[in-house]
Write a protein that binds this DNA or RNA. Structure first.
Length: 478
RNA sequence: GGCCCCUUCGACUAGCGGUUAGGUCACCACCCUUUCACGGUGGUUGCACGGGUUCGAGUCCCGUAGGGGUCACCA
C-alpha cells in the first residue's frame, strides 16, 4: 500500500506549482490504489496567515484533489497539523541529542550573521562552521545554566557520500562534508521543516515523497536524519519534480505574473482546464492526446515518466485549453458560473437572457469572464467605440445608410435574426450595395466593437428597443 | 562562488539504438465566412556543442557550454 502526501505550508494562497505537486501526489495515490494524506506544515509561527488553511482546503476541493487522511477527515496518524505535534518533535530532538546525532548550539543570530559575512568576504561558501559541535559538556552546561537560548543542530557525519535513488532523476549523491549541520529545533521550541518533515513522514508511514526540485539539495539532510533515527529501512522513496518556470526560465514567481490558483479562478479559468494544463507540465502519457479527464490522468500517471527538466508555465496553451473546456460545458453549467459575474459587474439580466448570451459566446469565450467583459455590450450600451472599426466602417455613407434603415427596423413586426437579416438584405439589394456595407457599421453602432457573434443573432438578443436606441444614439454622436 | 540538477521546434511534450524526429499551443498561408472565433487544408521552426561506444545515436558514456535550484533559528 503506497502512502503519499501533500504537505504545504499555509502561507495565504496556493501557488500553481503547489497545485501541481498536490496533483501528482494525488494522481500517484489514486493510480496505485494508495492513501493520499494532507499535512499542514505550519511550524513557522512568524508566517502564520489567518484563514490560509481554509483557503487551501477550498482550493483543493475546487481542483478536485481529495485526501484520505488530513486535518478535516482525521486518520490513524494524526494530528495532521504540525503545530499540534510539537511535543513529538521535542521528544525526537531529545532522542538525537541523547544518541549524539545532534547537539546544542548557542551561537546568536548576530554571531552567525557575522560568520557568514566573513565567509563571503573570503570568497567561501556560507556555511555554519560547526563551532558548537565539539564543545565540552562543561561549556554547554554553563550556557544551559544561565538560560541562554539555543538551537539543536544535526551532527552530520563527515567524510561520507550520501547517495539516494530519486524516482525521477535516478541516483543522486552528495559529499556529507558539504552538508550543513542543519538546525533541527529553533530556539522558540518549534522544529524546522527538516526535522518535522522526516519525523512526520516516518510516523505517518509515508512511502513516497513527491515534492518540488527545490528540495533536492536538502534531501541528504533528510537521509542522514532517517539514519540517525535508525529508520533507514523504512525510508520513503523520493521523487523530485521539475520546477515550473517563468518565461525567463527562473523559478515561477509572483513578480512575473499570476501564480496563485485563486488568480486563475478569478480570471475565469475552469478548474478542469487548470488541472489538465498543469498536469501536463512535466509529462504526457500519450503522443497525441492533450485533453484528459481526471480519471484518465489517474489511469495513466507514471512517476517514472515524469520529465527532469523544468517547464515554462505558458499561458497561451492554458487559454486554448480553457476555451476547449468552455465549449464542452452545457449552457446550463456555464450559467451557474456566469451569473455571479453578471451580478458582480452590476448588470441586470435574467437567466433567460444570460443563457442567450452564453449560446452566442460559448464558441468564442476563452474565459468565463469573457461572457461578461468581452461581451459587455449585451448588458450595457457601448460607452466608447472601437477606433479601428470606426475608421474603417463608419463612413459618411454608412451613417446615412444606418439613418435610413432605422425606420425599417422600427416597422419590423417580428424581431428574430431571420427577420432582421431579411430587412438588412432587402435594403442592401434595393440600394445595390453589399450587405457588408451595412453589417459592419451596424455592429459598431450597437456593440461598440468590430467583432463578436453573428450580427443578426446579436441584434435579436439585445432586443428591438435597445437596438433602435443605440442606433439613434450612434447616428447622433458618431 | 561551493554543491546538486537539467538541456527535443518560440512554449508544452512523444521518443525508451535503426523514425521522412510525431502531437498540441502559438505563428503564417489558404478554404469557410458579415466581423471575431470555430472548423478544414497546408506550412515555417527542434535533438545546445564536441568527442567517443556502435554496422547504426535524439536515445549509451565523457567533456564543454548554457540554464536552473540550493546554500536561514522559511518552507
Amino acid at each position: 500500500m503506497t502512502r503519499s502526501r501533500f504537505a504545504p505550508s499555509p502561507t495565504g494562497f496556493v501557488h500553481v506549482g503547489s497545485l501541481r505537486t498536490a496533483l501528482y501526489n494525488f494522481l500517484f495515490a489514486r493510480h496505485t490504489g494508495g492513501v493520499h494524506v494532507l499535512r499542514i506544515e505550519d511550524t513557522d509561527q512568524s508566517r502564520f496567515v489567518e484563514g490560509a488553511v481554509d483557503n487551501l482546503l477550498r482550493t483543493m476541493e475546487w481542483a478536485g484533489i481529495t485526501f484520505d487522511e488530513g486535518p478535516t477527515q482525521g486518520g490513524e496518524y494524526g494530528p495532521y497539523v504540525q503545530s499540534e505535534r510539537t511535543d513529538l518533535y521535542r521528544k525526537y530532538a531529545q532522542e538525537l541529542l541523547d544518541n549524539g546525532h545532534a547537539y546544542r548550539c548557542f551561537a546568536t543570530a548576530e554571531e552567525l550573521d557575522e560568520m557568514r559575512k566573513a565567509q563571503q568576504a573570503a570568497g567561501k561558501p556560507p556555511m555554519y562552521d560547526r563551532r558548537w559541535r565539539n564543545k565540552s559538556q562543561d561549556e554547554i552546561d554553563a550556557k544551559l545554566k544561565e538560560g541562554a537560548p539555543y538551537v539543536v543542530r544535526l551532527r552530520v557525519p563527515l567524510g561520507e557520500t550520501i547517495t539516494f535513488n530519486d524516482l525521477v532523476r535516478g541516483e543522486v549523491s552528495f559529499e556529507s562534508s558539504t552538508v550543513d549541520d542543519q538546525v533541527l529545533m529553533k530556539s522558540d521550541g518549534f522544529p524546522t521543516y527538516h526535522l518535522a518533515n522526516v519525523v512526520d513522514d516516518h510516523l505517518m508511514k509515508i512511502t513516497h515523497v513527491i515534492r518540488g526540485e527545490e528540495w533536492l539539495s536538502s534531501t541528504p539532510k533528510h537521509v542522514i536524519l532517517y539514519r540517525a533515527f535508525g529508520w533507514e529501512d523504512t525510508m520513503p522513496a523520493f521523487a523530485h519534480l521539475p520546477l515550473l518556470l517563468n518565461p525567463d526560465k527562473s523559478k515561477l514567481s509572483k513578480r512575473q505574473g499570476d501564480v496563485a490558483v485563486e488568480d486563475f479562478k478569478s480570471q475565469g479559468y475552469l478548474s478542469e482546464a487548470l488541472v489538465n494544463f498543469v498536469s501536463l507540465l512535466g509529462f504526457n502519457p500519450s503522443a497525441t492526446q492533450e485533453i484528459y479527464t481526471m480519471e484518465e490522468l489517474i489511469a495513466s500517471f507514471e512517476i517514472a515518466h515524469v520529465n527532469k527538466g523544468g517547464a515554462v508555465f505558458g499561458r497561451e496553451k492554458l487559454d486554448w485549453m480553457n476555451s476547449e473546456y468552455i465549449r464542452k460545458k452545457s449552457p446550463e453549467e456555464l450559467l451557474a458560473l456566469v451569473k455571479p459575474l453578471v451580478k458582480e459587474r452590476g448588470y441586470s439580466a435574467d437567466d433567460v437572457y444570460i443563457m442567450k448570451v452564453i449560446r452566442l459566446m460559448q464558441e468564442r469565450a476563452r474565459t468565463i469572464n469573457d461572457f461578461v467583459d468581452f461581451a459587455n455590450y449585451f448588458y450595457t450600451a457601448p460607452a466608447a467605440y472601437d477606433e479601428k472599426s470606426r475608421t474603417k466602417n463608419w463612413t459618411p455613407e454608412a451613417k446615412v445608410r444606418i439613418g435610413e434603415i432605422l425606420p425599417k427596423f422600427k416597422e419590423a413586426g417580428t424581431w428574430d435574426h431571420a427577420a432582421i437579416e431579411g430587412v438588412v438584405r432587402t435594403y442592401a439589394e434595393g440600394k445595390g450595395i453589399s450587405a457588408g456595407k451595412l453589417i459592419h457599421p451596424l455592429r459598431l453602432a450597437v456593440s461598440g466593437v468590430g467583432m463578436g457573434p453573428g450580427l443578426f443573432e446579436l441584434l435579436e438578443v439585445i432586443g428591438k428597443n435597445e437596438v433602435i436606441a443605440r442606433l439613434e444614439r450612434a447616428v447622433e454622436i458618431l
